[in-house]
Structures are given as C-alpha cells and as structure tokens.
C-alpha cells in the first residue's frame, strides 16, 4: 500500500515538474529579445568550449611573434595583432573561456553560500536572522568594486583570488533575496504540513522551501554573472585582476590603452566581446524574470 502510493506521488511529481518547466519555456519563448540573448549565450558557450580544440594555447594565444606585430585586421588576422604579434581573434575567443568560467564559478559559490545564509536567516528568524543579516549589511555597506579591490589587494592578483573576492561580494545579494523569498513561504500550509509529518528543519529547508524560491535565485544568478564579468574586466583593467599573459578581455583593454592612438582596433574588439557577453546574460535574466512572474512584465 505505502509502496504503491509513493510510486504514485513520484509519478505525479515528475509530470508536474515537466509541465512547470514547459510553461516557463512557453512564456520565455514568446520574448524575442530574451531568445536572442539565449542564442547569443549558447554560441559563446560553444566557442568557449570549442576553443580548446580549435586553438593551440601556447602558440596561438600567448605565443609571441614579433614579426607580425601591430597588424591591422586582415584576412589572415581577422581582428589584427597586438604589440607582441599575437592574433587578437584567437585571444578574444580564448578570453571567453576565462570570463565565462570566472562568472560561472563566482556566481556558483556566491549562490550556494548566499542561499544557505539567507535560508537559515529566513527560516529561523529572530537572533540568527539578526546576526547573519547584520554581517551581510556590513558587506553591502560598500560598493562591490571597492570590496573586491581590498580583497585582491590583500591576497594578490590572480584568477583564483579574483574568483574568491568576487564571490564574497555577491554573497549578500543572494542571502537577501533568498531570505525574503523564504519569509513569505515559511508561513504557508505545506510547510506546516511537512513539520507535522515530523520532517526535520534541514529537510524542510532543502526539500520544501528552497525549491520554491528557485525563481528569484536563478534570475539573480544570471544578472549576477553579467555584473561579475563586468567587474572582473574592470579589475583586470586597473591591473588588480587576472594577470597579463592570460587573455582576459579587461587586461587586453588595459594593454590596448597605450596603443590607442594608432591601433584603435585593439581597443575595439575586446570591448565588443564584453558587451555581447554581458548583454546576452542581461537579456536572459530579464526574460526569465518576466517568464517566471508574468505580473511583473513591463
């Protein structure tokens, strides 16, 4: 009897889940700009993944070739070459790996930690909530860029340190969003029902409450990825981010700054790459928000 009924609930759950996703996709698909963002991001992800097969990192991306330095865009070098004779196109393609990787992992870490903090603060309320959210307030008290600069200054530049600094700055935003979502869910009947069934707090938080807050978390994650990519590019631009031989878009711009008078193309293409990546993520984030909550549609 019990076996039968659990099987049934599992089945029902599956059907429900698929239809929810389908409904989301149905809403999302109607938004043309959001679809454009999704296609753009997919293309960028594919090039980022394919870059390893198409380009040889040592010769084509960081290998210097003085004879071919500072060439304007041509058939051989689509985006031209920089002051060390490196092909700008190859570097920008490889740069997408770094930016997307850093964006993805930063948001991944910040989302996990921030959601946990927000969930505990929202679920338990009272003193736990007060202490956790006051700590978050301290981190929110100053702009993310300044915080990141202070942390990178202490740890030193480099990809892992930048990743840590950026995720630390993003944690409070996730904590806030998850907390407010959970406070509205906490009082609902199904949570009470779960508690009556004898579920432990942890189970209630992870199985019953967090899945219901997934919408705002996903939206914040996409937009957070966009701001992270912008932030990392900015840090690298002032020399406190990802360091020189790595083809990061921001540090490429910083190198191009000195050549700006005579080689403006060096400055143009990396910037376009940043804009496209950030734009795609912003479009996806907006589309998801509208699809998840049609009332908010503007």
């Amino acid at each position: 009897m019990t076996e039968h009924s659990t099987q049934k609930t599992v089945q029902r759950k599956k059907v429900k889940k698929r239809s929810q996703l389908k409904a989301l996709w149905f809403q999302y698909r109607k938004n043309r700009l959001a679809m454009f963002g999704l296609i753009l991001m997919t293309l960028m992800l594919l090039t980022a993944l394919g870059a390893g097969f198409l380009l040889d990192y040592d010769t084509q991306v960081i290998g210097q070739n003085i004879r071919a330095r500072l060439q304007w865009p041509s058939a051989a070098h689509w985006f031209g070459t920089d002051q060390y004779g490196r092909d700008l196109f190859a570097r920008i393609i490889w740069g997408s790996r770094i930016s997307l990787f850093v964006g993805f992992f930063t948001v991944g870490i910040a989302m996990t930690v921030g959601s946990l903090i927000g969930a505990f603060a929202g679920y338990y309320g009272g003193r736990v909530d007060n202490v956790l959210m006051r700590i978050m307030d301290i981190f929110l008290a100053m702009p993310g860029t300044i915080m990141a600069v202070a942390i990178v200054g202490a740890l030193g530049p480099g990809i892992i340190n930048v990743l840590m600094a950026m995720s630390l700055c993003r944690i409070p935003q996730f904590a806030r969003i998850v907390r407010s979502a959970i406070i509205t869910i906490r009082g609902q009947e199904f949570v009470e029902a779960a508690r009556c069934c004898g579920s432990k707090d942890l189970r209630i938080i992870f199985r019953h409450i967090l899945p219901n807050a997934i919408g705002p978390i996903v939206v914040q994650a996409t937009i957070g990825m966009a701001t992270t990519i912008l932030g990392v590019a900015g840090l690298s631009f002032i020399g406190l981010g990802i360091e020189a031989p790595l083809p990061e878009w921001g540090s490429m711009l910083s190198e191009a700054k000195s050549q700006m008078m005579y080689q403006p193309y060096l400055m143009f293409f990396p910037g376009v790459a940043i804009v496209l990546a950030v734009l795609a993520l912003n479009l996806i984030g907006d589309g998801l928000r509208d699809a998840l909550d049609p009332r908010m549609k503007t």
Partner: peptide, 10 residues
C-alpha cells in the same frame, strides 16, 4: 539595455 551592458571604462 545596451548601456547597462557596456563597461564604463570602455
């Protein structure tokens, strides 16, 4: 939308 995606330093 474009302006939110452009890095200010660029």
């Amino acid at each position: 939308l474009l302006f939110t995606s452009i890095p200010p330093f660029w």
